[in-house]
Structures are given as C-alpha cells and as structure tokens.
Design a binder for these strands. Structure first.
Lengths: 233, 233, 233, 233
DNA sequence: CATGAATGAGTCTTCATTCAT
DNA sequence: CATGAATGAAGACTCATTCAT
C-alpha cells in the first residue's frame, strides 16, 4: 500500500513518480473540467494508467482533491512565509508576496486554477481543510500588517485583518482574471504589469501618507487626524 | 406550460408567485449546499411544492441556476450602472459602487453567495452566460475609469481594465470574506467598515496623488513623474 | 417517497402492490442465487420494474434483505407464539410448532430458504437484527419447556434452553434438508413424514417416562406395536 | 509452482509450513468476517505474508475455501468413520459421534465455525463440493442406522435417512448455538452437557423401547430413576 | 396545473487476479 | 520464491428527467 499513512514515499522511487503523475493528471483534469465535471476515469486516462491504480494511490476522489491542494498550496505558503517574515519594509514585503503569487501562476497555471476555482470558493472545496489553510496565510499577513502598523508604516485607522483580506483578495482577483481569461495570460508583460499594479495600488492607499491625501473627510471622521494633513503642509 | 417561452409570466398571477417561490428556494438551497451538492428534490422541499412542479417552471437544473443568476444579478447591474453613469467625481462613484454591492449583500446575502460562489467562478457557472454578464459590469467600470483618466482623476500610468478588475476583485473578496465567515456578517458596523475600507484603500492608491507618495521608484520608472519627488524634497 | 418512514403503505394501494412485487422478486432471487450472488439488477428484472425503482422502495440492498426477513419471519413468529402459548400438553405444542414450521415451508419454500440460508446463519444475516429475532423464538419455546418442566411433563434433568435449541435445531435441520434437496421437497408425504418424525423423536426422548409412554397413538398408527401398549397396561 | 497439482507438498518442507500458515489465517479470517466479507488482503495480512503469495499457494479464493473445508472436514470425517464402523451398540456409536463433533469444536472452534456457517449452508459453500462431502457423512450414518434397524436397535417405523439427518441436525444446531454464542462456549462443562443432552435426547426417542430403556446409566446417573424401569416390568 | 412514481444512464468504489521485478 | 504494483470487470447507488394520473 503506497498510501503510506498519508505520507508520500521518498522522492525518486517509482511509486513517488507514479503518484506524481496521477496528481499532475488530476490537476490538469480538474483545471479543465472542474472537480464535479470529471470522472476518475478521466484522471486515469490523462495519467495513462489503469482505472484502479488511482485508487491504489488515493483513497477516493476527495483525497485526490485534497492532495492536489496540498501540493499546490504547500510550496506557495512556504515561500510566502519566507517573504512575509523577512526583515524589510512593508512595501517590499507586499511586493514580494505579489511576486510569489504570480510566479506560482507562471510556474503552474493549472495548479493555481484548481486552487482558486475548485478549492478556494467552490463548495467542493469543503472537502478540503481550506479554512485552516487560508487561516494560515491570512494570519501570516495579518501579523505582517499589524507589525507594520506598530512601526508606523501602516495607517492607524486601518484594520490589519481587512488589509490582509484586501491583499489576498486583490491577488486572487488578479489571478482569477488570468485564469478566467480576462487578461492575456500568455503575455508575461501583462502578467508582470498586473502583479505590479496590484501591489502598488494597494500600497498607495494603505501606507501612511507622508504629505497629502485625497480622502480627507473619511480619515478625519475616523481618527480625527486633521493634524496629519496640516502638519504636512 | 408556464414556461412561457422563457419569459416570466406577468406579475401578480398565481404562476408568477409559484415561480418566485421556487426560485427563492433554489437560491437558499444553492447557497446552503452548492449547485452540485443539492438535488431538485431539495429545492422542491424547500419551496414546499411537489417534486415535478419544479419542472413545470424550469426546463432543467441548469435553467434554474441561470434564472437565479438573472434575478440576483439583474438588479445589481442596473443599480451599478446608475451609479457609474451619474455625473460625479470618480471617488463618489467608486464609493457608490461599493455601497451598492454591500447593500445587495445586506438585502439578500444568500443570493449574493450563490452568485459569488456558484456562478462567478465555479465551473458550474459555465452553465450560465456569466461571461457576457461580467463583461457588462467590467466594461461599465472600465468606461468609468477611462473617463476618469481622461479627466485627470485617475493616474495616467494605470490600466483602466486592471482598475476595474481591482475594484470588483476587492469587492468580491470583501463579500467572500463575509460569505465565508471570515468577518462577522451579522454586525452591520463590520459590514459598513469593510465596505468603506475597500473603497478608500482602492482610491487612496488609485487616485492621482496630490502631494507626496511612497513608492517613488515605481512611479518614476513608469511615468517619469519627477515633479512628485521634487515636491517632497 | 413511499419509503414512508419504514412503514409499509396501506394494503391495496398501488404502491403497496409494487413494494410487494419487488419483495417477492427479492425473495426469489435471494433464494436462487444468494444474497451476495445477486445484483439489484436481478431483482429489478425479476420484478419487471426499472432498476431505480427498487431504490424508490428500499434504501439499499441491506434494507431489502431486512424486509424480506421481516415478511418471512413475522407471520411465522406470530403463529408460533399462538401455538406455544395455548393451553395444551407439551406434546401437542411441540407437534404444533413443527406443523407451523413445515406449513410455512409448504406455503413459501423460497422465503423459508432465504431465512434459513441467508439470514439465520450466513454472516450476510448480520445485516439483519436476527439476534433479537431468534431470541424471541428461543425465549418463547424456552418458556414453554420451563413451564412443562414445572408441570412435570419435561424431565427434570434437562436444560430447557437446550431443549429449545434442540427443537429449533431439529426443525431447521429438517427444513435445511428440504431446502438443500436431501429429501424430495415436492412430495408432500415426505414433508409430512419428516415433520412428524422430528416432533416425535424429540418428544420420545424428552418427555418424562412415567410408566406408560405418551405418544402411544403415534407408534401404534405406524407400526401396530400393540405389544408395547399391552405390556404397559 | 508450489501448487503441485493440487497435492500439498510434503510435510516439514518450508512450503508446507507457509501453506499451513496461510490456511490457518484463512480459517481465522473467514471465521471472523465470513467468506464474502473478507479480502485476500485480509488473509495475507493475518498470515503475515505478502499479498501475492497467497496466489502462489492457492489458485484463487475459491480454492482457499475448498482447502479450508478439506482440512477442517477431513479429520472429522475420518474420526467419525472410525466411530461409526466400530462394532458397538448404536447408543455407543451415537454418543461417540457427538463426542467427536464437540471435541473438534473444542480443538478448533474457528474451523468448525467456518465449516458450519460458510460452507455447510451458505451459497458460498457451493464453491465447495460439499454435496459429496455431506453425502459421505450422511451415508455413513445412514448405514449405521440401517444396520441398527436390522439388528433391532432402531425402531422399525423410522426412516434411517431421517435419523441421520436428525443426528447431524442436532449436532450442527448445538455447535451453531456455541458458535453463535447462545451458550457460553468457554465453559467446558456447558459444552460437555450440551453434547450429552443431544445424544441422549436423540437416543431416548429413537431407540426401540423394549421394556427397559437402553440408556439406563445416563438417566440414573442424572436422576436416579431406577424405579421407572422397575415399575414397567 | 399538480403530483410523485418510474426510468435508466452515469460514477464511484471494491477487489479478485495478474505480472514485472 | 516473494513482493506488491497494476489491471479492469463488476456492482451499488444517485439523481436528473419523464410521464401517467
């Protein structure tokens, strides 16, 4: 039983290869037809293996989805953490996170598609422990924003949790736009531009404005920082 | 045949009532269990009508989803258009759009949930002509941003399409956060705050900065706005 | 949903007929091929209904078996109880029980076959609450034997529970012999003879031998052993 | 190929050991979960050998069951024959047969369980040539009873075949009671008592009542009813 | 219009058996 | 001999859709 208690066998082994093949096939098929829209037979055919072999490596369709998620999400989370926890200004970190996300897309658009369309939002994703997964990433960036708030990099009146949500919302939306085909996802320049605009737009509105700002009333109404503007003139 | 060639029967008629009842039930059930996760029987039970009656009013499950979408999306689009096309500064419009969206949520969270989770992204949504639907709304706001760019309200270096995407991405993310339960969707103050922060964060980073800005290098690199930097020294 | 919470619909209704048809078919197919050896499709074909209809009336294969058991066993138990609890000498009761059992066989050999081969002993029967079912019948006869012991009809040294087991063991064995084909089950005389010999053999060894033997008539009727009676007088 | 044309390899060889191990495992697993309820994998795990090895020693699952039967049944039949063909009064023989059966149970309850529950009656047993097997034993005892009838030990009016059936029915029922757990199968005294009551009950009703009862010792030993016989003379 | 019984194609899942190493 | 990965046929169960009443 290669199921091996949930742990994947050591890399290089033939089984590990097989497993990976099937997982790749699953990602491709899920990306093409959606979790509900494909049959195990499709995965098997795509992987070029016999029907039953899929069940040799995965207990059932759910576990397949779960594994797809783990694989696609795992690396992303690790790189994200590295970026978020490095000692650097907030702006750097936010740009870094956007970069990591869009690089993941450039590297494996199908995997990203499945995570975004099938797991992140679809009820099919309920089969996955996505809550804790997203909780990880949201906590991560929430901490990041909170720290930035304490160091004065982030406006006082903002809720760090909302900032975190905004960041990933914007990223996810950008990726969705690519995934769904709103933007030309073949053109690296477009992808690059999208990635930048997301980070910068968020930052421009999020960072403490040293100078002047447009939405004066809103800020004042919340934190009474009339002085801020004044001080700067 | 109440199907009536696709058109809904006149309001007030008994059939119209029935139809609405079933549609409401479908929205509730789709919201609760997802399109794939529920059976026609669930809809019928929820509506308190006989199994087969659903098929009197809707050709099939797909049409049911399509109708749910039309109903939930229709009003939203109209109000959105009204806001986007009014003569007003960009900031007003953006805030208005956010307001419309979150009001829709307050008014019918289930409907919004279905549109967001089932139709907007899930492959199940392919059954719906969502592309043209979203195209409508994106075009709408793209026009809005483009006009703002021409009038000098929007930074020159930004792509209006990306702005549109960002706006709806942020809104959708905010709604998702509510729908998924990240934020307490019972507390109107929370919803209000979320709505505002989304609009303002976007605006703060999107509007032409009258004063100073943080991400100097990025802007310079793109549009050579020397003046900005200069002003700060 | 005719499942109706487990209760069968009122007799005479069309559904009740259908249900019965399917149940009969199930009994026949189970009897012919065994529980594990037949497919739902076989039952449907035998009943002359569509595949899915079986599931309209029974949740699953297990419930089908369970229902078969209830139907086949229910009547038997009731008649058994009537016999065991009537005021009569033990010998009468034992003969009556044997009669009831073999009449059940004459009336519905397939049903008896399923109960004996599929439910009574096969692990497949674990799906049925046979323990309590058999407990009923064993308790019933245990009480009967215990009472007979107190009234002096049953030897003191015998364990009533073992007697009960012996009685039903003998009956079941006899039925098995018919079911399995050891004896010619078409010949009513054979069945009759078997039934008698079982009751009388058990009785002859079980009844207290107070002087004259009890089952005089039976012996005389068969072999005219007048001497026996004579000697005893 | 250790299959060796169906013959088992010589005792003492490594293969013979392996084969026995697997067979034992099969008996245990069949006894625990039933023939249909277990997989080859279960047998292999129980035996502590590799999956495929089972197929080195047995062509298929059927042959496994068949072999289990041969092993469990073989010894029993031989000892039975020895008892039935010895020169001794019928009563002795019947008691001997009961003793052999219950000793087999004491020695290997699992094996007996499989033979009784899986092979003797279940349709799964059709995979085994049980007919000829049972034919053997029934013939054996039928001959025994017929001889006893000719020598005057058995009542004339009884059918020897039915007597044979009764004997094994009673025995099998008694074993079933143990196997199924009606009686406490851990308590040797209970088993002993059951074995005796079966033999004596059958005998008491089956033997010709020539004045004095045959099984005097048994009755006396239990209840000291010497008077009974006396009274009759 | 309403009802819900009837239909049957579509899928997941299991597991006996084979076979390359 | 041993191993366990690979194969694929078989069968239970679901549920959208139809249709007779």
């Amino acid at each position: 039983m290669p199921r091996n208690g949930g742990k994947r066998p050591g890399p290089g082994s033939r089984e590990a290869e097989r497993r990976k093949t099937i997982l790749r096939a699953a990602i491709d098929v899920f990306a093409r037809k959606g979790y509900h829209g494909c049959r195990i037979a499709d995965v098997a055919r795509e992987a070029g293996v016999a029907y039953g072999l899929v069940y040799h490596y995965f207990h059932n369709k759910d576990e397949l989805l779960r594994s797809v998620f783990e694989v696609s999400w795992g690396g992303f989370l690790a790189r994200m953490r590295a970026v978020a926890e490095q000692p650097a200004p907030l702006a750097e970190k936010v740009r870094g996170i956007a970069r990591v996300a869009f690089e993941a897309y450039r590297h494996d658009p199908r995997g990203v598609k499945v995570v975004i369309l099938e797991i992140a939002r679809s009820p099919a994703g309920a089969r996955v422990d996505r809550n804790s997964a997203f909780a990880d990433v949201v906590q991560l960036s929430e901490r990041m924003f909170r720290a930035a708030q304490e160091s004065g990099e982030l406006r006082d009146e903002l809720d760090p949790r909302v900032c975190a949500a905004l960041l990933f919302g914007a990223i996810e939306m950008g990726l969705t736009a690519l995934v769904v085909g709103v933007f030309n996802h073949k053109d690296d320049a477009v992808v690059e531009r999208l990635q930048r605009q997301i980070a910068e737009s968020l930052l421009g509105g999020v960072l403490s404005p040293r100078g002047a700002s447009v939405d004066v009333e809103w800020k004042r109404e919340r934190s009474g920082t009339r002085a801020v503007t004044a001080r700067r003139s």
